[in-house]
Amino acid sequence: MTEQNRGVEEILLSTAYPFWDRLTAEERAELLGSAAMAAYKKGEYVHRSDMGCTGAVLVLSGLLRVYIVSEEGREVTLFRIHQGEPCVLAASCLLEAVQFDLFIEAAEDARAIVIPAGVLRPIMESNPYVGLYMYRQATERFSDVMWMMQQILFMGADRRVAIFLWEETAGKGQKALRMTHDEIARNIGSAREVVSKVLKYLAEEGVVSLGRGRVELTDPEKLRKFLP
Rank of each mutant, 00 (worst) to 15 (best):
R136Y: 08
E108Q: 07
E71W: 05
A157G: 10
A36W: 00
Q99H: 10
R160G: 11
D219Q: 13
A35F: 00
V57C: 02
M51V: 03
T180W: 04
G43P: 10
E221D: 14
T24D: 02
N187L: 00
Y45W: 08
L210C: 12
M149H: 14
K42H: 07
F142H: 08
L23N: 13
M134R: 07
E168S: 15
G62P: 10
Q83S: 08
C93I: 05
I68E: 12
R214N: 00
A191T: 11
L199Q: 07
S196H: 13
E71F: 07
A36C: 09
E167I: 01
Y201L: 01
M134G: 04
L202D: 03
R22N: 14
F100S: 14
A203F: 05
F19H: 08
E205G: 07
G62K: 07
R192Y: 00
C87H: 08
G118M: 01
L60K: 10
E205T: 04
A25H: 11
T15F: 04
S190K: 12
G156T: 10
L23C: 14
I68G: 11
D158F: 07
I163Y: 10
D21L: 08
K41L: 00
E221N: 12
R111T: 09
A117H: 10
V145N: 11
V66L: 09
Y17P: 01
E205D: 07
P116V: 07
P220L: 00
G173R: 11
L31Q: 09
E26Y: 11
A35H: 01
N187K: 13
D50H: 13
S14A: 15
M155C: 15
G171Y: 06
T54V: 13
V8C: 04
D219L: 00
A56Q: 05
R121N: 07
R186H: 12
M146G: 09
S196Y: 10
T2V: 01
Q137I: 02
L94N: 12
A191S: 11
K42G: 05
P128L: 04
N187T: 02
A162Q: 14
D109C: 06
S92E: 10
F142P: 03
P228R: 13
N187Q: 11
F19K: 08
W147Y: 15
D182G: 10
Q4G: 01
V59E: 01
S190I: 03
T2A: 06
E221S: 05
R80S: 03
A35L: 00
I123S: 08
R159Y: 06
S190D: 14
L223N: 12
D109E: 14
I123R: 10
R6G: 01
K42A: 13
E221V: 10
T180I: 01
Q150V: 11
Y133M: 00
V46G: 03
D182R: 15
V119E: 12
S92I: 03
T139C: 14
I81L: 02
E30R: 15
F164Q: 06
L223Y: 11
D109G: 14
P128W: 08
L120N: 05
E168K: 15
H82W: 09
S92N: 14
L89Q: 05
R214Y: 00
V8L: 06
